[in-house]
Design a protein around this nucleic acid. Structure first.
Lengths: 213, 213
DNA sequence: CATGACTTTAGTGTATACATAAACCCGGCA
DNA sequence: TGCCGGGTTTATGTATACACTAAAGTCATG
C-alpha cells in the first residue's frame, strides 16, 4: 500500500472519529512526523481530504478540519434526501427484487445484532452498508453513486456525533427494512416515501442529540 | 498564481475543449515539460482532475482522460435532473424574486446576443451561467451547490461535443426564461416542471447530435 | 516457432533541499 | 497607548534526486 494512502486513511479516520476536532490546523510537517512519512504523501492526502470537504484550505496557513454546524447538518440532509429518494425510486425500478428481499429479512432480524455485546455496532452498520451498496449497484449510475458516496463520509461524521442509542437503532432498522421491502416490491413511489420518512426521523434524532449538548 | 493552479487550469481546459481526447495518457514528465513546470504541480493538478472525474487513474501507468459514452450521458443527465429540479424548487421558495425577474427579462432578449457575430457564444453562455449562479446563491446550500458545480464541468464537456446550433440555443433560452419566471413567481412546482422540460429537451438534442457522428 | 524467464526501461512513488510568501513579533513613532 | 513598518520566522510551494514497480522487449530453450 502506498504511503499516501495510509496517510489519507489515517487522517480521514481521525477526522471522522472526532479525534481531530473541527478547527484543528493540520500542518504538513507536523502530520508527516506523526504519521512517519514525508511531506509529499501528506500533501496528497490533505488534497484529497480537502476535495472531499473534510478539510478546508485556510489560505496560506495549512488546512483546517471542517466544522459541522446545525445549519450544515440541515444542508447535508437536504442534499441527502434529494439523492437518496431518487436513488430508492430508481432501485425499485431497476434492482433485483431477490437481493432486497434478502436484505429486508436481515434488517428485520437486526435487533439480534444489537442485543449482542458490540459497542461499536459493527455488525449493524455493516448490514446497513450492504443496503447502501445494493442500492448503488441497482441504480447503475456511476455519477449518482459517486455523489452519494461523497455524502456518506460526512454522514458517518454526523452519526458519530449523534451517539445513536439502541432505541433509535431499532427504529432505524425497521425503517431500512421498509425501504428494502418497497424496492423489492418494485414500487418506486413507496420506496421514495419510505426513504423520506427514514431521513426525516434520522435528521430529527440527530438534531435533538446535537442540541442536547 | 501558483504553478499547480496554472497546470490544473491548462489541463482542464485542454480536456474540456477536447484538445486532449478520451483515452489519452497524461504522463507526469511529459506534461511537466509541455507546461513548463516540474512534476510536483502537475501531480497535484492530475489529482484534482481525477477527483473531479475528468481523468481516471490507470493503475500504475499514469492517468487517462475519461471517456464520455452515450450511456454516461444518460447517467449524467439523470443526476443533473435529480439535482437541478430540486434546486429550482428550492430557489423558488428561497430566492429573491427580483433577481430572477431580471434574469428572465435578459433571457428573453437572448436572441439579440446570438444574432451578433460571436461564434463561441460567450455572451449567451455567460448569461446562462449567471442564472446558474443565482440559483446556487438562492438555495443557500453549500453541499447541493458543490454537487451541481462538480456536475457542470462534465456538462460543459458534453456541450462542446454537441455543437449547439442557433435554433437549439434560441429554444434553450426560452426554456431558461421559463425557469427564471417560475422561480421569480415563487412557484416550486412550476419551477420543477420547467426544469424537467428543459433538461429533457437538452438531453434529446445532445443525444441526437451525438448519434449523428 | 512459440513460450517463458530475465533484463531493461520508463514511469510513478517518496524523500528532501531550496524558494517564496504570509504571519507574527518587536521596536519605533505619533 | 495605539498603530505602523520592517525583520524574522515558519509555513507552504516547487524542483529534483533517488527508489521501486510494472510493463515491454529480448534472448534462450523446448
Amino acid at each position: 500500500m502506498r504511503a499516501s494512502d495510509r496517510a489519507y486513511a489515517a487522517l480521514r479516520e481521525d477526522i471522522i472519529e472526532w479525534r481531530l476536532r473541527p478547527g484543528t490546523v493540520l500542518a504538513e510537517v507536523e502530520q508527516s512526523e506523526r504519521l512517519g512519512v514525508s511531506r509529499t504523501p501528506v500533501r496528497e492526502a490533505l488534497g484529497r481530504l480537502t476535495a472531499e470537504g473534510l478539510t478546508t484550505a485556510a489560505g496560506g496557513r495549512g488546512v483546517v478540519v471542517t466544522d459541522i454546524s446545525l445549519d450544515s447538518i440541515d444542508e447535508l440532509f437536504e442534499l441527502r434526501e434529494t439523492l437518496e429518494v431518487r436513488a430508492a425510486a430508481l432501485a425499485a425500478q431497476r434492482g433485483e427484487p431477490g437481493v432486497f428481499a434478502e436484505l429486508q429479512a436481515q434488517l428485520l432480524r437486526a435487533p439480534d445484532l444489537l442485543s449482542e455485546k458490540d459497542p461499536a455496532r459493527h455488525e449493524y452498520y455493516a448490514l446497513v452498508g450492504r443496503l447502501d451498496e445494493a442500492i448503488d449497484a441497482a441504480i447503475s449510475n456511476s455519477y449518482l453513486a459517486n455523489a452519494m458516496r461523497s455524502l456518506r463520509v460526512h454522514l458517518v461524521r454526523v452519526r458519530r456525533l449523534a451517539a445513536d442509542d439502541a432505541a433509535r437503532l431499532h427504529a432505524a432498522a425497521a425503517e431500512h427494512a421498509a425501504i428494502a421491502e418497497a424496492i423489492a416490491a418494485g414500487n418506486p413511489r413507496l420506496a421514495e416515501a419510505a426513504t423520506t420518512l427514514h431521513l426525516h426521523r434520522s435528521l430529527t434524532h440527530v438534531k435533538a442529540a446535537h442540541v442536547a449538548r
